[in-house]
Design a protein around this nucleic acid. Sequence first.
DNA 1: CTGTTAGCGCCTTCAG
DNA 2: CTGAAGGCGCTAACAG
Lengths: 329, 329
Amino acid sequence: MPTLKQIAQAAGVSTTTVSNVINGNLRRVSGDTAERVRAIIRQTGYIRNEAARALAQRETRLVAVNLQTHGEDNALLNPYSAVFIGALTARLYHHGYHPLLRFSDDFQTVEEDIVGWNVAGAIFNGSFTRYLTQIRSLAAVPTVLTDCYYDLPGVNRVDVDDAGGGRVAGEYLSRMGHRRVAFVANSPDESAVEIHRLAGLRGVIDVPDRWVIPFADIAGGGRLDVLTSGSDRPTAFFCASDLIAIQLIRALDARGLRVPEDASVLGFDDLPMATVCTPQLTTVAQDIGMKAQLVVDMLVRHIRDKSLPPERATLGVRLVERDSVARIE
Amino acid sequence: MPTLKQIAQAAGVSTTTVSNVINGNLRRVSGDTAERVRAIIRQTGYIRNEAARALAQRETRLVAVNLQTHGEDNALLNPYSAVFIGALTARLYHHGYHPLLRFSDDFQTVEEDIVGWNVAGAIFNGSFTRYLTQIRSLAAVPTVLTDCYYDLPGVNRVDVDDAGGGRVAGEYLSRMGHRRVAFVANSPDESAVEIHRLAGLRGVIDVPDRWVIPFADIAGGGRLDVLTSGSDRPTAFFCASDLIAIQLIRALDARGLRVPEDASVLGFDDLPMATVCTPQLTTVAQDIGMKAQLVVDMLVRHIRDKSLPPERATLGVRLVERDSVARIE
DNA sequence: CTGTTAGCGCCTTCAG
DNA sequence: CTGAAGGCGCTAACAG
């Protein structure tokens, strides 16, 4: 593989000129020379050394993409994360960047990536609140936080309208005749996202605390038996994610309860899996592709113009009606 | 952020010594100096510049991970790919490497990654046969091919025992009383993986060509109607992936046919989704985490010792019995 | 429009 | 066991 210098020699020009051609600074090169240089680049199959470029420019075309792991080492086991990361990646390519993936619950590795690789920017998904403030480099590198209700001065944010989603869910369930609704979430008193979804729901329907259920209680213990027996029981379950909804449906099914005949289930996210399960999931949809685009485009804007003031965007949601919620009464 | 040189000055030693400490060449440094250097590194929070290291060493700690896209731009929409990429990533971390992700159907971008970033190694998943031979850099960079039945001299391979999986499927279906079995796959006459699965099945059960079905024919057209009416119809469908199986179950469901009562469905892969659908999928399982480990460990071995001869490994499969296949007759 | 030059931060011979 | 020095390949002033 030739170096830029060799290209310059072969073309009989200086390295500056070649560099200018490669980087599209065509104002500083005559059309003639540019074409000659390009021809040589093409015929030699020259590819620029990114490490050298990074060293000289003090910046790579890498964007640190950080995902909380919650202990699990394969963060892409979660289908929402997988789809989102895939969408981010595709959009990053669009702007000529690469994701530098990091699954971690620990800020040290994250900082090593950001600083060690001289990344152009950083994206965080989830509520890293525990250590976000410890990441000193955050101030220096354009950053976008998603699904993270934490206000860090100078940092950009993209959030889903979680409260709005909860409200939409409540209004829909209400319209379908449901008055008694339970909320199932991973950690309903820690996850900011889930807290907002619940708050939105409660703006419409009164949900008693005993019906705010950590999913683990259902997956593990017999909490579901209590919730499905006796007369004091919910007619519908609003789940903080499709993944939870689908597992809940299975758990109900295992107890001989059919959805939506015996209980209604409403999801959140609208993952591909929502349409391949039985019954197909009625869910509050967020457009993950659009979200990735919002995030990446915002980041790139701030990479290009470091003086831009912090931005904040909220992604709308909409209800997608399928088969898991029944009209009652 | 200090540079290595500044650390050296602060410690009153040369850059060589600091470099040796960082890279664990402790034979060439006295325990005393090493500790002094380490202390300064710790208290300044020094992080080594990867670009500089890469330039000096002509190699990054990046591994190019390439995924075919089949036109789609978000390759992680496919749950199998998502889980596999996640597992690869986790295992790469384990050895101190990062994945450099590329979703592409085109060898140019792939080569730009490999050469431009001086990656330490490359992993390909899927049958890139169309252009694999065009990637000149493959000879120079340790490479592992997965799920790619293509023999490239000097290149390592990890495959799943697809033929064995087909056989296991056939034997199981046979044991359950099925004689009339159809095979549903994405591109049964192009995908090497699918071809092997079918071949394995055919070693046990006779599958007429008319029952070898591209999934598109089912998803799109009314081919399924033909397959489910009349007396000349299969009693079981062996699907080349869980994803296909689940969609097939839905399509059957839409026609009022229940699985497994009216038709049995057998999947392949054993993705997480196999347990969250109804009925839960009986499937030929491959251990994706193990596969990722085989791939990465093999790659790292060859990165460390460039003189190693090419290797080849095959991942075993096993049948996981759940609820989508019925015993008949 | 084009060339010269001085680094970017680290690794790695080679001397001592 | 330690240090000095050159160079990895590219970019970006600064001259011309």
